[in-house]
Design a protein around this nucleic acid. Structure first.
Lengths: 193, 193
DNA sequence: AGACAAAAGCAAATAATTTGCGTTTATGAT
DNA sequence: ATCATAAACGCAAATTATTTGCTTTTGTCT
């Protein structure tokens, strides 16, 4: 991610970065992806195109940079009082957000960039959310599956279907979550002990 | 995929298509991705750039088109005489091929295209391979998990890790396969009845 | 406050993309 | 077989995007 490291954190640089990011997001609400070019973004942001070219290299890197920022979770998973329910609620929302048109576009932007660090970051965002749920469950004394297992059993299938096929429906997400929870104790997702 | 449907199947069109595809593949062995532009491809293919623009639209669609073709399986999964072993052998090879640099580039190309049909096709290639393994197992009278479950439990985690994190190692693939096989009968992957 | 260098602006040069139009050539009907 | 038709291609001009050299602005560190 060109705009994150090794650059001046304050003042004009930060202002330009914010302005360009804002321009991209604004344009995405009014135009189609194919119409959004760097000169267009530059005009919207009140910046000269060469600034964008020098900082981000090409439009894919810029779009990926914006997408990563937008994919960063803005709140922590709801606390239902039980780990299995937390995970289900989180997974349902995750599936819905990522299946939406903007969601799918953001994922595509992240994956299309040469710089693979964006994808890695997004994966970490997800992991952190699950770790949060797992940590709360453990604090309550509940058993909870390993985070990597949740990634394999819940997150991966959701993402794969969104990327390669049709978005998973609610029933499918429920099945995935209860399957993952059964790694701990059979049939314990729905009913609190 | 622009080049697959609604165009003349024979003669010059087919020749141009083959020539352009060949040019892309040849260039990918000698250049980096960022250096491959449509004018460069056109020169290599002995074709005028506007032909490529009119047929594929932009370079992402073209690269996706080529990638889908290269991702099409060229042989059927090895037959070890037992479904679980077949699946393991297939999954190991799949993971290795897709984790390689050319493999990851092809996947990225497919996913980066606007036209989502390429991703769908790739998913179907994979499904068909697994269906083949499943069909053979059933012909032998073995139990074998549902293809969709194999997609969720084996293929998805492999692909997710390749796209978003680090490639899965052999031990992990083994664990995924035996987990999927346990959907049928516990601990029956290795040993023939 | 001043020196330094990073980042931005500007404009000219280069490269990619689009487009209009004439030519070639698959395809389907006679 | 030949012909009519339209799809696909080639070519070149026009447009648009990208790169690059140089100057100016402005954070940052002393």
């Amino acid at each position: 991610m060109a705009s994150r490291e090794g650059l001046r954190p304050g003042g004009r640089s930060a202002r330009v970065q914010a302005s360009v990011h804002g321009a991209v997001q604004a344009l995405m609400t009014r135009m189609e992806r194919g119409e959004i070019t760097i000169p267009v973004i530059a005009t919207e942001a009140g910046v000269t195109p060469s600034t964008i070219y020098r900082r981000w290299g090409d439009i894919q890197e810029l779009l990926a940079d914006v997408a990563v920022e937008r994919l960063k979770p803005d709140m922590e998973p709801v606390d239902t009082g039980e780990g299995g329910k937390d995970l289900l609620a989180w997974a349902e929302q995750y599936a819905e957000e990522m299946s939406s048109t903007p969601g799918r576009e953001m994922i595509r932007d992240v994956l299309a960039a040469q710089d693979g660090s964006g994808a890695y970051q997004c994966c970490n965002f997800t992991k952190q959310q699950i770790e949060l749920i797992a940590g709360r469950a453990k604090d309550r004394g509940e058993a909870f599956p390993d985070v990597d297992d949740v990634m394999d059993r819940v997150v991966s299938p959701i993402m794969y279907r969104i990327l390669f096929g049709e978005a998973p429906d609610a029933a499918h997400v429920t099945r995935l979550v209860s399957g993952a929870m059964q790694l701990i104790s059979p049939a314990s997702v729905g009913e609190p002990t």
